[in-house]
Computed example of a mutant assay.
Amino acid sequence: MTEIAVRVSAERLEEFSGNDLEDLCDATEGAILDGGGFGWVTPPARHVLEAYWRGVLLVPERHLFVGRLDGTIAAAAQTLRPARNNEAQAFALQLTGHFVAPWARGHGLARAIVVAAEQAARAWGFRSINLDVRDSQSAAIKLYESLGYVRWGTHPYYARVEGDIVAGHFYYKNLSETEAPKQEIPLS
């Protein structure tokens, strides 16, 4: 059997070009339908998704990281800086909206995006990253824990999915006490 090599990359996206917006919306819809839609339970209309992603690029406190499989956006995550008036938590960045399209899983995109976000956070001077995740997302939990994120709490009434209340977990990673993971893929 012959293995076909795929190109995997992770980068911060500051503007859309080519098919980026369409690819990102396709990946988002796939992730939502598969249960990993970072808050969405059912995919919104395409124009709503497009407006959402365009808006992410306009908000100064948000940064969009994407994962590409053979050049096609197949995964994403966002970092969220604290509000400017929140001096007490100005050292901590929030990682949110992390997903990989079902068809692109198993190639390391989820890890690559988190590592890219961590590298950017360190470069921007942040000392901590916080995130939360639904209890049902075991692959994401394993990834975060393998990268050194520490679970500090569980909320038993975290979200409602298809009428059921599900638990969620809260994590942090102290960037000043951990080394940057080795990134084996090119970062733009």
Results as ranks from 00 to 15, higher is better:
Arg54Glu: 13
Gly125Val: 02
Glu177Pro: 05
Phe170Trp: 03
Arg105Leu: 08
Pro181Phe: 03
Asn19Thr: 14
Lys173Tyr: 02
Leu143Glu: 01
Tyr158Glu: 10
His169Arg: 10
His98Lys: 10
Glu118Met: 13
Leu109Glu: 02
Val56Ser: 09
Arg46Ala: 07
Glu177Ser: 09
Leu64Asn: 11
Gly168Asp: 03
Pro60Tyr: 14
Gln89Asn: 14
Ser17Ile: 04
Gly67Ala: 11
Gln119Cys: 07
Leu131Gln: 04
Ile185Phe: 02
Trp103Leu: 08
Thr178Phe: 00
His169Met: 06
Pro181Arg: 06
Leu24Glu: 04
Ala120Pro: 09
Ala90Ile: 02
Gln89Thr: 14
Val133His: 03
Arg151Gly: 08
Thr154Ala: 15
Ala10Lys: 01
Phe91Val: 06
Glu87Phe: 03
Trp152Gln: 09
Gly153Trp: 11
Val59Met: 03
Ala90Trp: 01
Glu179Lys: 12
Thr2Gly: 05
Arg105Gly: 11
Glu184Trp: 03
Gln137Pro: 00
His63Phe: 10
Gly30Leu: 14
Glu118Thr: 15
Glu184Val: 11
Ser136Met: 09
Arg68Trp: 04
Val115Glu: 10
Tyr158Leu: 13
Ala180Thr: 10
Trp53Asp: 13
Leu187Ser: 12
Leu143Asp: 02
Gly37Arg: 03
Arg84Phe: 01
Glu15Asn: 11
Trp124His: 02
Arg111Asn: 00
Ala123Thr: 07
Val161Gly: 02
Gly148Gln: 11
Ala110Pro: 01
Gly168Pro: 00
Gly153Ser: 07
Glu145Thr: 14
Phe65Ser: 02
His63Asn: 12
Gly153Leu: 09
Ala88Met: 06
Leu147Val: 06
Arg46Pro: 00
Leu69Met: 11
Val115Lys: 13
Ala51Val: 06
Leu33Gly: 04
Arg68Glu: 02
Met1His: 08
Val114Ala: 04
Asp34Thr: 03
Glu184Ala: 07
Asp23Asn: 09
Tyr157Lys: 15
Thr79Ile: 06
Arg160His: 14
Thr42Pro: 00
Thr42Gln: 11
Arg12Ser: 12
Leu13Lys: 08
Glu11Cys: 02
Asp20Phe: 00
Ala83His: 12
Ala90Tyr: 01
His107Glu: 08
His47Pro: 01
Thr178Ala: 10
Ala159Phe: 02
Ser136Ala: 12
Glu177Asn: 12
Glu15Arg: 14
Tyr52Gly: 04
Tyr144Val: 08
Val115Gln: 15
Gln183Asp: 10
Val166Leu: 14
Lys182Val: 01
Val56Arg: 10
Leu69Glu: 09
Pro44His: 12
Tyr144Leu: 07
Gly125Cys: 03
Ala74Glu: 09
Trp152Thr: 07
Ala116Arg: 14
Gly67Met: 05
Ser128Phe: 06
Leu13Ile: 06
Thr178Gln: 12
Phe91Tyr: 10
Ser128Asp: 07
Trp53Met: 08
Tyr158Gly: 15
Asp132Leu: 06
Ser146Lys: 07
Val161Phe: 07
Gly108Pro: 04
Arg62His: 13
Lys142Glu: 14
Gln137Ser: 04
Leu64Val: 14
